[in-house]
């Protein structure tokens, strides 16, 4: 049982009309790993995330998480089990301040207190205060503490992207899946995001990340899975993936993998 992977993707396929976006995808991620998912544009990375997180239903195949078959389970219920994803395009609660966005991210952790909240008991108020404190802490970790009271939609794109990570972190994920967290970020922001990923992984969060920045991929990952035309063409350590012929061919002319 201890050897069972945290996430097992088994024969997952997804068709869009005639297009096969994912074709019999199979791989596993163990508790505590930091795994990168790479592949050229349109390879099916985001589709794979959508299927695993429950935002799309697979055409066939299944997702097993913490020993549970997730088939047919709604996204919010998967998130409650600790399987949390971020989005490729910056996603925030636009009308709210950055700190309120992060508090919303921790909503489920506080839900038991909703009834207490209705009656405004002192316990409920303490709860609210401590969630706010925790949210500020998460913003600090993400380097956004100076933006706490800014409206989320007023933040520059890169900061909205990082805020999306902060919102996900506030939900205390067990498996955090990030879809291109550094796309649209400048070099400094990029650097800080990889530091955050490294740090939360050290704290025990399993991390699964779609990434285009090869320095981030090679520097951080325990393992790299390469997707091309909806199929896994490599699943190995960064060093060996870098030397893999099929991978080099898939990327030739796409971008420099060295």
């Amino acid at each position: 049982m201890t050897d069972a992977p945290l996430l097992a993707v088994q024969g997952l396929s997804r068709r869009f009309g005639g297009l096969v976006a994912l074709d019999d995808l199979t791989f596993a991620i163990r508790q505590g790993e930091l795994v990168s998912l790479i592949g050229p544009n349109g390879a099916g990375k985001t589709t794979a995330f959508n299927l695993i997180a429950g935002f799309l239903a697979p055409t066939s195949g299944r997702v097993v998480y913490a020993g549970r078959d997730l088939t047919g389970m709604a996204p919010h219920r998967r998130a409650r089990l600790g399987l949390v994803r971020t989005f490729q395009q910056a996603a925030v609660f636009g009308d709210q301040t950055a700190v309120d966005c992060v508090v919303a991210g921790s909503h489920v952790r506080a839900e038991a207190g909703i009834q207490a909240g209705f009656f405004g008991t002192p316990g409920a108020r303490r709860d609210e205060a401590s969630r706010y404190e925790a949210a500020l802490e998460v913003l600090r970790l993400c380097g956004l503490d100076s933006r706490a009271t800014s409206r989320a939609s007023d933040l520059p794109y890169g900061e909205q992207k990082v805020l999306g990570i902060a919102i996900a972190l506030a939900s205390r994920p067990r498996l955090l899946m990030l879809d291109e967290p550094t796309a649209g970020l400048n070099a400094v922001e990029s650097e800080s995001v990889s530091a955050i990923l490294d740090r939360i992984n050290e704290q025990g969060v399993t991390v699964f990340v779609v990434e285009h920045d090869m320095r981030v991929v090679m520097g951080l990952s325990d393992r790299v899975i390469v997707l091309d035309h909806g199929q896994v063409i490599a699943d190995d350590t960064p060093d060996r993936v870098r030397a893999d012929d099929a991978v080099i061919r898939a990327y030739l002319g796409d971008f420099d993998i060295a």
């Binding site: 919010h76 909503h107 506080a110 909703i114 209705f118 405004g120 999306g164 919102i167 939900s171």
Partner: peptide
């Protein structure tokens, strides 16, 4: 004020994001 308000606002502002954190 109970917290339902926060959940409603999250759903209003971005339903997919709300679902992604378990709402």
């Amino acid at each position: 004020e109970s917290g339902a308000g926060r959940a409603w606002h999250a759903i209003r502002d971005n339903e997919d994001l709300a679902a992604s954190v378990g709402i």
